[in-house]
Write a protein that binds this DNA or RNA. Structure first.
Length: 533
DNA sequence: CCGTGTTTACTGGCGA
DNA sequence: TCGCCAGTAAACACGG
C-alpha cells in the first residue's frame, strides 16, 4: 500500500515527512509483531520508484503481497541467494551508506551507478556497521546500468551521489576524500559550532562531544582497514533513526547568498557597520553563530566587491564605516525589498514550521514508544491511517526550546500568520476526492533551489479537511507574471510582450501603439538583477 | 594587536 | 569548453 511520496533529497532537512515516517515505523513494528512477519523482505519502510509517475513512494512495508507485486513488475530480481529491489532507495535522512558497500567513486565512475539496490544485510555478513542501530541494517549495492536506458535521469540514482554527503549529520567526520587537512579542520569547527549553539554555548558539552567523536573516529580508523580507501563514497555513514534530532543539531546554511544577507541587514537597518552586519546575520541565522572568521571574511569581501553596497560616513563609535545600499531610496528598490522581505519571512516561517514538526515528532516518538508497549493490539490499518493522517495534519502547540528568537516569533499559533503557515505546511491535497496526483513543493526544495519534480503528497487523506494551500507555483516569487507585467508597464498579446503607454497600466485597454520587445521566454525576474531597465 | 577594508587568486557549480 | 557567479582563502594596508 502506497501511503505517500517524498522528494528524494538530502536537502530534506526540514523534515517534512518525519511524522509520516515515524508513524510508518510504528505501523510496521506493530504489524510485524502481530503478524509474526519474518525478516525476508518485510517490516521495513522504503521509498519505491513509481515508474509511471516518476515519483518516489513510501511503501508501508514490503509484505509477501507487495513483494509479489514488485516481482511481477520486474522490479525485483534474484542474484544468487539474494533478492534485490531495483531502484529502491531510502531517503538519506533515514538510511545512510556503509563504506564497504559502495565500491567506487561516483564522480569517477558514475556510469556504474545507474542502479542502486537495497537489500537487507545478511545477519552473518562480515560487513557490519560500526554502530548498529538495532536491527535496521541495509546494504546498498551498485549495479551496472541496465540495457533499458529510458528515463535514465530518474530511474538511475547516480544523481544521488551528487549530494553533499558531508553535510549530512552523523556522517563520519574522517572523510578525507580530496580534502585537505585544513578543510577537515574547518569541518570540525563547524560541527563544534553547531553543537555548541544548540547546547546554549556550553563549551564543556561541546568539548566533551567532540572528544567522544574523536574517540569514535580513532576506534573506527583502527578497526577499519579501508578507512583511507579513496574509492569509498560515503564511509561509515550510520543509519539515522532520528532525523528530527539531526535537524535540531545541524542548522543548515541558509539559502541566501552573502550579498542577500547583507542586503537584508542594510535594508532592515538602513545603515550598519561591518560588525553590525555580522550581528544582524548571526542573530537571525544560527548557522552564522560561529565565531570563526571565514564567513565574516566573505561578508567583508562582498561589501568591497559589490558596488551595490556603499561605504558611508565613519561610525561614531568603534572602527569602520557605516555601510548602506546605494539605491535604497529608489522605488524599484522599495519594490524589490518588499519581495525580498516576503522571501525572508517565508524562510523564517518554514524554519519555524520545521521546529514545530521536530518538536512534534520527538514528542510523539516518546509517546508512541510508551503506547506501543501498552497496546500491542494496535495494528488496525485504519487506526494507523487515522493516526498517520492526524500526525500529518495536526497543528501542534509545543514550546520551542531550541529555536532562535526570530523563528520563535513565527510560531505563535494564535496569530493569523501562523495559521496561514500551518496551512502551507501541511502539504495536503485540497480535496479529499482528488483522484489525480497533485504535486506540492517542499520547503527544502523551495529554499534550496532544488529542481526535482518529486514532491510530498499524502495519498490517503480520508479524514483530512481541505486546506487552502498557497497555489502559486513559486512560493518565493509569489507575484504573478501578469502582476509584474502590469507594474512594469508591459502589455501582453498572445505570447508576446509589449511596451505600452505608461498611462495604461490597469490592463483594461489594449495598447494603442505597441512594439514587440519580448517573447514568452523573456525573464520576468522583476526584482532581480535582470530587472527591466 | 585587532578590526576593518581592499584586492587577488582559486575552486566548484551551473548554464550557454 | 567557456564564462559567470558565489564562496573561500589569504595577503596586505590602514587606523584606533
Amino acid at each position: 500500500m502506497i501511503i505517500g511520496e517524498q522528494r528524494l533529497s538530502e536537502n530534506n532537512y526540514y523534515g517534512e515527512t518525519s511524522n509520516q515516517l515515524d508513524g510508518l515505523k510504528r505501523k510496521i513494528n506493530t504489524e510485524n509483531e502481530s503478524r509474526n512477519v519474518n525478516n525476508s523482505y518485510s517490516g521495513r519502510p522504503g521509498i519505491f520508484k513509481n515508474f509511471s509517475s516518476n515519483k518516489m513512494h513510501f511503501v508501508e512495508s514490503l509484505t509477501a503481497e507487495t513483494y509479489s507485486t514488485y516481482q511481477n513488475s520486474d522490479q525485483i530480481h534474484q542474484d544468487g541467494d539474494q533478492s534485490y529491489i531495483n531502484l529502491t532507495v531510502l531517503t538519506p535522512t533515514l538510511i545512510q551508506y556503509d563504506k564497504v558497500t559502495i565500491g567506487c567513486r561516483p564522480e569517477e565512475e558514475s556510469e556504474h551507478f545507474n542502479q542502486i539496490n537495497i537489500t537487507k544485510f545478511q545477519e552473518n555478513n562480515e560487513i557490519s556497521l560500526k554502530s548498529k542501530p538495532k536491527d535496521e541494517k541495509y546494504e546498498v549495492k551498485n549495479y551496472q546500468q541496465s540495457d533499458n536506458l529510458e528515463d535514465n535521469e530518474d530511474k538511475n540514482l547516480s544523481w544521488l551521489f551528487n549530494f553533499k554527503l558531508d553535510e549530512i549529520a552523523n556522517l563520519s567526520p574522517e572523510i578525507k576524500r580530496k580534502r585537505s587537512s585544513h578543510q577537515h579542520h574547518q569541518n570540525h569547527q563547524v560541527e563544534n559550532h553547531n553543537h555548541s549553539y544548540y547546547q546554549n554555548n556550553n563549551s564543556n558539552n561541546s568539548t566533551l562531544q567532540q572528544n567522544q567523536n574523536d574517540e569514535n573516529n580513532i576506534q573506527r580508523t583502527l578497526k577499519d582497514p579501508c578507512i583511507e580507501d579513496d574509492l569509498n563514497v560515503a564511509e561509515n555513514i550510520i543509519i539515522c533513526n532520528t532525523p528530527p534530532t539531526f535537524t535540531l543539531h545541524t542548522p543548515k546554511k541558509p539559502p541566501f547568498t552573502y550579498t542577500e544577507l547583507i542586503e537584508y541587514a542594510l535594508e532592515d537597518k538602513g545603515e550598519l557597520t561591518v560588525s553590525g552586519i555580522y550581528q544582524w546575520i548571526s542573530d537571525r541565522f544560527p548557522y552564522y553563530k560561529s565565531n570563526d572568521d571565514r564567513w565574516k571574511n566573505s561578508v567583508r569581501h562582498n561589501l568591497s566587491i559589490n558596488p551595490h553596497f556603499r561605504k558611508g560616513n565613519k561610525a561614531k563609535a568603534g572602527a569602520g564605516h557605516l555601510w548602506k545600499i546605494s539605491s535604497r531610496e529608489s522605488e524599484a528598490n522599495f519594490l524589490a525589498w518588499e519581495h525580498k522581505k516576503q522571501r525572508l519571512d517565508l524562510f523564517f516561517k518554514m524554519e519555524a514550521a520545521n521546529q514545530l514538526k521536530v518538536q512534534n515528532s520527538l514528542h510523539r516518538k516518546v509517546d508512541d514508544e510508551t503506547n506501543l508497549n501498552k497496546h500491542s493490539e494496535y495494528v488496525c490499518s485504519q487506526n494507523y491511517d487515522a493516526e498517520l493522517n492526524a500526525a500529518t495534519a495536526s497543528i501542534i502547540k509545543l514550546p520551542l526550546e531550541t529555536c532562535s528568537p526570530i523563528i520563535a516569533k513565527y510560531v505563535d499559533t494564535d496569530s493569523p500568520v501562523s495559521s496561514q503557515y500551518y496551512q502551507f505546511q501541511e502539504i495536503l491535497p485540497t480535496s479529499q476526492h482528488q483522484q489525480t496526483d497533485e504535486l506540492r513543493k517542499t520547503a527544502g526544495e523551495i529554499l534550496n533551489g532544488v529542481r526535482r519534480n518529486v514532491e510530498v503528497q499524502i495519498m490517503h487523506p480520508s479524514d483530512l479537511q481541505s486546506y487552502s494551500i498557497l497555489n502559486t507555483e513559486d512560493y518565493l516569487n509569489p507575484i504573478s507574471k501578469e502582476e509584474i507585467m502590469q507594474e512594469s508597464g508591459l502589455g501582453r498579446r498572445h505570447d508576446e510582450f509589449y511596451l505600452i503607454d505608461p498611462t495604461i497600466v490597469n490592463g483594461s485597454e489594449e495598447p494603442t501603439e505597441v512594439f514587440e520587445i519580448f517573447h514568452e521566454d523573456f525573464n520576468l525576474n522583476y526584482f532581480g538583477n535582470n530587472m527591466i531597465a
